[in-house]
Write a protein that binds this DNA or RNA. Structure first.
Lengths: 209, 209, 209, 209
DNA sequence: CATGAATGAGCGTTCATTCAT
DNA sequence: TATGAATGAACGCTCATTCAT
């Protein structure tokens, strides 16, 4: 308990403050929504007073926007790794979708950002576009790339899935929304659901023999 | 019976008030969410003062709940009509899904109720269950019935879709969410999307030759 | 049930309306006070709507004032009758005080008017004076007259009671206030209390032998 | 410890706030009654805004109740001192009653609490009991003790005053009520009134020669 | 005479934001 | 950096009063 230690830990703590606040804000905003969340509640989660929050963020609006930005972690990077996989296009597609399940349906953070995009999109139009650019567009683009590759290689039949790769992935959204709505009250068997999804989607992509 | 006529027309107008209010409330609540909507704004839409709203609904909470109930129109009835269709199971499934697109993705009312279920579900737990019982459960049940019929008749292959009929229909949710998020900013070509959906899903269900 | 009967009874009822309203107003105002009483509650007691009250009384203020006037029934007249009694001055004084007990402490109407004078006197200064002129002054004057008579006749000793006849009667107020405060929660044995009062007061007035 | 000094003086000011508010509340509530008093008026008396009041008291109800408690200062203690007096029982009784006049009839605070007990007793039943336990019961008990002592020593005659000591003291209430009703409009000559009261009451207690 | 829908002013309470310490 | 007292603008809800029927 030397002074140096204290100082260090304090300095570290202070450097962490903004992030702590953003994470506390995330919890509050996702549970109550923007309007019903009080800045004081965010502060209380950290054991500080609301004045402290205003030390780091000038308004509740800004706090919300920066929280959203802070919690949005890049998805495109993850997707890039899929391109390096070996195996059939179908395998790669499976791997890609699995990744998307993890990122979108299993990850509470991303799920809640989806909720906020839907509920606060009117007040914060930017977050919707951010959500699209960050999660939806990269996923659809990646799916499209694989579908097109599969079609080119003859592994997949030509079909409308090239135009709307969304239809290949939309069950992921289904799980995400399901969990947002029902949480633990109507649990969903993730792996089994995914299996059903893959079963239908890949069979739908394969050429009729 | 002149008096009766007069009375009727006025009585009608009074009888219409609650519905007018509920519909105005729908517009406000869906745009701003529960917390950010002011009772006065709801009233202003009708050109009345907030006192008038309180003449018909005792609290903002009740107004919201009754609005939700009022805007939730039965979906199960519609689905029942599908059972009477002729043609292949695939055709019936197509017809069913088409109906679901109309009810869930195309109908602004239903779409916005989905948004409210997601955004206000914490504050009004009942509406989530109502939404499930009203829209989700009947649709999934109907899809399951058809899928099972198709499997029984040999028209569809046996697969996980029986266990999770959701995966057959989840693209409908995708369109609904897409429109909630992007409205007219990123329009979606409905018919083409539906075609892509049917193309993938039905091919996914058919037996490998 | 001829029409004539109905008409008559209706006409009678209408003629009674103002009084009915005033009496309903009395009940409400005494229980809740002026500010907390709603005109609608007064109306509801009669099974009519508030519009009806406004048919007879232009404002809530006027309703209150007229209610107070209506419930204030003359006390001076009663007192006058004491003057005609026979017997000793002490007997007459006893009779007078007994009358005052009946009028002030036992009569709910008068008791509640005292409460209203105390609680609403600021808003309605007139009612305080009315209450004084109606109940307090006549009583004190009557007591003074008897005391003076008793002193003149040698039945009472000379004392300060002539100057402040209030002290002879103030126990009556005590019972009234007691009942206003405690109602049935701390009942008071009226006759026994009165006996104690008379015992003390009359002995206090008699000359030291 | 300069800092301490500064802090203390500021801390003192903050510590004083609740009392300042309670006292301002007392003034407003006694003049207008509970329902007609606006929290904003209480605040305005201190030159602050109503938000400040809510910093210290969660609701108007609580503000009223705590105000009542704050203004109720113990009376029993005072009465205890009477027991130590020397002199005849009559002298002691006189001293006791004098004390009660000071506390109940002369002290605006106590007088107004009586008014509030009568006017707001319905809404705040507790305050009536508090007023009884705080002022009425101790006084009556003290009077009873002295009366009984006097009877035991033969200084007072046996009479109903032992059963209802109230009758010995009720003129005090008379003055209190009088002042509540008429304030300065009908001033009462306190000392002279008291003299009259004592004259009657003590003569009433003494044995007939 | 009676109704009750409608108004508008008002009040209790909340909360984002500021600022002196 | 952190506090928390204070503000002021809202907002939910109420109610005296009006008026068309």
């Amino acid at each position: 308990m030397t002074k140096t230690e204290k100082k260090t830990s304090r300095a570290e703590q202070k450097a962490r403050r903004p992030q702590e606040i953003l994470e506390a804000a995330f919890e509050e905003f996702t549970v109550k929504g923007y309007a019903a969340t009080r800045v004081e509640d965010v502060a209380a989660r950290l054991g500080v007073t609301k004045g402290t929050v205003y030390l780091y963020f000038p308004t509740k609006d800004v706090l919300f926007e920066e929280m959203f930005r802070h919690m949005s972690t890049p998805f495109a990077d993850l997707l890039a790794s899929v391109g390096t996989l070996e195996g059939s296009t179908a395998d790669q597609l499976r791997a890609l979708l699995l990744l998307a399940y993890e990122k979108i349906a299993d990850d509470r953070k991303t799920r809640e950002l989806l909720r906020l995009s839907l509920s606060e999109g009117t007040r914060f139009p930017d977050i919707v576009d951010r959500h699209h650019d960050e999660f939806i567009a990269p996923l659809i683009a990646a799916v499209r790339t694989l579908v097109d590759e599969g079609v080119a290689s003859g592994e997949f039949r030509e079909g409308a899935a090239s135009k709307f790769p969304d239809v290949v992935a939309s069950s992921i959204l289904h799980v995400a929304v399901w969990r947002l709505m029902f949480a633990d009250r109507k649990p969903i068997d993730g792996p089994a659901f995914i299996e059903a999804h893959f079963d239908l989607a890949l069979n739908g992509l394969l050429p009729r023999s």
